[in-house]
C-alpha cells in the first residue's frame, strides 16, 4: 500500500480557531455511506455548530470558538 509517487500525501491543516483543512484525495464517509464532495480542498467542522456538517460553514466565527487553551493554568491535561 505504498502511494504512487504521483499522489502527494493528504495533508490536514488545523486552522487556528477554525476548521480542519483537508487537501488531497480523500473519501469522507458517514454511517449512511460516502459523502460526495467535488472540491479538492475541504474544510471540516471542528467547532460543532456548522449547519452543513461534516463541512465548515464559517459559523465558528460567530460563537467565539477557540482552539487556544482557555485556561492554561487550570487545564491540567
Amino acid at each position: 500500500m505504498t502511494p504512487a509517487a504521483s499522489h502527494p500525501p493528504v495533508t490536514i491543516t488545523a486552522c487556528p480557531d477554525g476548521p480542519l483543512l483537508v487537501r488531497g484525495d480523500v473519501e469522507i464517509t458517514a454511517p449512511g455511506g460516502p459523502i460526495p464532495h467535488t472540491r479538492r480542498t475541504v474544510a471540516l467542522c471542528r467547532c460543532g455548530v456548522s449547519m452543513i456538517k461534516p463541512f465548515c460553514d464559517g459559523t465558528h466565527k460567530l460563537v467565539g470558538f477557540t482552539t487556544a487553551p482557555t485556561d492554561p493554568a487550570g487545564s491540567g491535561s
Partner: peptide, 9 residues
C-alpha cells in the same frame, strides 16, 4: 457556504 468557508482560510 461550503466553498467560502474553505477559501477564507
Amino acid at each position: 457556504i461550503e466553498a467560502d468557508a474553505v477559501h477564507e482560510q
